[in-house]
Design a protein around this nucleic acid. Structure first.
Lengths: 342, 342
DNA sequence: ATCCATGGCTAAAACGATTTAGTTCTTATC
DNA sequence: GATAAGAACTAAATCGTTTTAGCCATGGAT
């Protein structure tokens, strides 16, 4: 069974292709097509199960009603939830989503942008990798709107981003730990030059400094990005072995690291929070259900996705010639969810 | 800045559009284009940053090199992991993925199929909802291959599926519980007519019967599908309140239900496995890290995704006229991962 | 001198829509 | 009775590719 095309409808209804097109696009009245013809065409189209070919339509109009979503890894709970909220909001505006994971690989990210560009997506929502700013500028130069999420390029304010205030989030967590009397606070992060992670790290350093607490190199563990699970576990293990003596609290800077941390804590049977207070950036079912429950700096994930999609839709609405809506970046707040671990 | 098209290249290189097309598609030799012209075209294309428009290409060739992935909910860890393995395998075969979530809504699923069909995807991987078989048959009639995952239609063997043997998985878990001496085994499932869930339920009943253990209605809790989190929690709570007296073990038939169960167990401070043994279908980080660790029937998620994509690619390779590869459904095994909870 | 083969390209149709600029009737207007 | 103004449509160009059929030299065989 072949697909039915607009000319099949035209033939069967005994009218021209143009007429069918007008009827299908609600331009029939404007084009003064008669009541009878409109009904005739609509009936034939319904009977034959006509569905316009979006490729042809996209080729002609230049709009595909599709957006490209590039995340780090769709299997990660954070990005999966983000993806869902973007999908839902996109649907509300009649957009479809093509998604891809970069695995944090710069080269792969570039390829993905090319792929999506070849598929003529109308706009992009991107979790960028390092050095991707130039490629993104090119998209903008082609008049394709781009919204960054989760991460941003501080030196490129012309690329709008929707994200939380990472610095404030961590600072708030740190202040709370210090207020509770913890002084030997350790930090676990991943190796990256991306600004959002640097912000988190800076907050840690700044708050310590502000309270006159010396920064001990031995308390800061930066996991190399390409470490496998086992290797990363080992690294965290050496750090947390000092629980109760060298360190009295630990701040995990990402979701993934926090889960890793729990694994180590469980293995070493560290008493939380007696021997070690724990706080993590980003929530996760585990943190809510582990015993003791783990305190987190919670990002409003759904809101990020929704706001990003809205910002994109706003830009997509404008035809390009008119003055662009320069709604710049959106910064949300990441709140502390204090649980038993601190 | 506008996109460069094939005719821009042709003009600049001083050749015809056809020649450029041949060169770009590695048909230059077959079409006996001279060395010099080939190089000339390649250089111009590179300089101008030419990227073929996939819409136009798809319109002409009828192939978009895109597959549609329909899952229940991309935010769910199980489907997110599945999606990632499908994406990875698709990439290996030069396919892109457009994904959508049904939220288990039949009508939405139908709409999604229509959407994807309008976008001319080459094939589909679908987590079906109830009553979707006819719509899927239509896709097959249009010569679009479809592979089901996670679920299947027992009365439609002509729709291939990649999934685990749900019956065996649950039966194995039940046998293990019984072998360990548990007799008052409760069950938590969700309300659905889908075959994969019925299989799991039947395994529970059959194993009990085989061991002459009476089936108590009060030990089986079926959560209505549209229950919100709070309501579902309440339901599970009433069941688990009987831990230690009315029931001595509980089998959660899905990942989501298991997490819900943990929440209740934590709240009621039920001793696992002393008061209550726990086993869940599908693994999850939480089960591995909770104290005590929770036993599960583990599905090989990555393998399901990979096998499904491979089955699809195999069908996509065949042009349609030839005899179809009737590699029927793939059934994998779901193994028991015995942990501290039993 | 004619024919055929082959090498090296190009013209033009086709894919399935949208959209601009007509065309052909009526009917009203002066 | 000629002209203008709608009303109700349609023809054809266009989007950017792929692909089939064919054109035009050149050179060797007859």
């Amino acid at each position: 069974m072949k697909k039915v095309s607009i000319s099949d409808i035209a033939r069967k209804a005994g009218v021209s292709v143009s007429t069918v097109s007008f009827v299908m696009n609600d331009k029939a009245v404007k084009m003064r097509i008669s009541r009878e013809v409109i009904e005739k065409v609509e009936n034939v189209a319904r009977e034959m199960g006509y569905r316009p070919n979006q490729l042809a339509r996209g080729l002609r109009t230049g709009k595909t009603k599709t957006i490209g979503l590039i995340v780090e890894n769709i299997a990660n709970a954070f990005f999966a939830t983000l993806a869902k909220s973007i999908e839902d909001e996109a649907k509300r505006h009649e957009y479809k989503v093509v998604y891809c994971s970069t695995d944090n690989d710069e080269e792969k990210a570039r390829e993905l942008i090319n792929m999506l560009s070849q598929r003529q997506v109308d706009g992009y929502i991107i979790t960028p990798t390092l050095n991707l700013a130039d490629d993104i500028r090119k998209l903008q130069a082609e008049n394709k709107p781009v919204i960054l999420i989760d991460r941003y390029f501080p030196q490129h304010e012309e690329i709008p981003a929707v994200l939380v205030d990472n610095y404030e989030g961590v600072a708030h967590g740190m202040e709370t730990l210090i207020a509770k009397g913890y002084r030997k606070i350790a930090l676990v992060s991943i190796e990256t030059e991306m600004a959002h992670m640097k912000d988190r790290l800076h907050a840690y350093c700044d708050v310590l400094r502000r309270h006159g607490i010396p920064e001990e190199k031995s308390r800061v563990k930066i996991i190399p990005y390409n470490s496998d699970h086992e290797k990363a576990l080992k690294e965290v293990e050496t750090l947390l072995a000092g629980a109760g003596t060298d360190i009295d609290a630990v701040f995990f800077l990402t979701n993934y690291l926090g889960v890793l941390g729990i694994e180590v804590i469980k293995k070493l049977q560290i008493k939380v929070p007696e021997q070690l207070a724990v706080i993590c950036f980003d929530d996760n079912d585990i943190f809510r259900l582990y015993t003791p429950t783990i305190s987190v700096i919670r990002q409003p994930v759904e809101e990020i996705g929704k706001k990003a999609m809205l910002a994109l839709v706003e830009r997509l609405g404008h035809t390009g010639e008119e003055s662009y809506p320069t709604t710049s970046s959106v910064r949300l707040t990441a709140d502390l969810v204090a649980r038993e671990s601190i």
